[in-house]
Design a protein around this nucleic acid. Sequence first.
DNA 1: ATATATACCTAAGTATCTTAGGTATGTTAG
DNA 2: CTAACATACCTAAGATACTTAGGTATATAT
Lengths: 112, 112
Amino acid sequence: MRNSKLYKGSLNTIILKLLEEKGKMYGYEITQKVKEITKDELRVTEGALYPALHKLEAEGFLEVEVAKVDNRIRKYYKLTEAGEKETVNRLLALEDFIRNMQQLVNPKWSLE
Amino acid sequence: MRNSKLYKGSLNTIILKLLEEKGKMYGYEITQKVKEITKDELRVTEGALYPALHKLEAEGFLEVEVAKVDNRIRKYYKLTEAGEKETVNRLLALEDFIRNMQQLVNPKWSLE
DNA sequence: ATATATACCTAAGTATCTTAGGTATGTTAG
DNA sequence: CTAACATACCTAAGATACTTAGGTATATAT
């Protein structure tokens, strides 16, 4: 990731959401897509990404399909059924988190 | 914190913002205030809070004032000048983070 | 020929949290 | 009156998720 420590813990959610949206993606593609969407403000480093993908796979949330394109290996990941459920939960948790952070940071409560 | 890994890295920002708003606060007060604001959805544990306060103080962002109330010690923390600047930066980083996460999670980009 | 892009990977170190304690005083319920 | 809960501080061990810094290999552009 880039600069901010805030991103800690959100990588899995990002991966799951991208896969939900795109159907299947390979690792390098994910790094590029995040760069593109966030206009280079957020970079998923490979040192964080690959272990995260392997863990999500080990937990049964992702499955892999290996392909060979231009003489190079690609590992396409897609959500399992459990992964789809997990994605829903993670997105709900993200919404809660953002709502809570906004409540903490927007000073409405200071008028109490 | 509570349940979600998303909160990792956001504790310092929460502390700084609360102190900016309230002027001065003591540790236990911070834990209660966060519970109150987030309607018990987010709990700052003392095991995370006190080391974080000590670190922010060591970094020169907070200064301490010890008081005795009802025969119990309270350590009031408030922002230094450097702490005020840091708070501005952390809040900007939080806004960036939230904006980026919303862009990643809101599927506008999937229409491309 | 060299750098950059694509594409995978791991290991050591760092940071931030959780969990699980510890100390001590004040207050409330049975 | 005593036991539980609230207030108020603290630390240490362990878990986890990153960053940093490598490594391998092929394709393409300068």
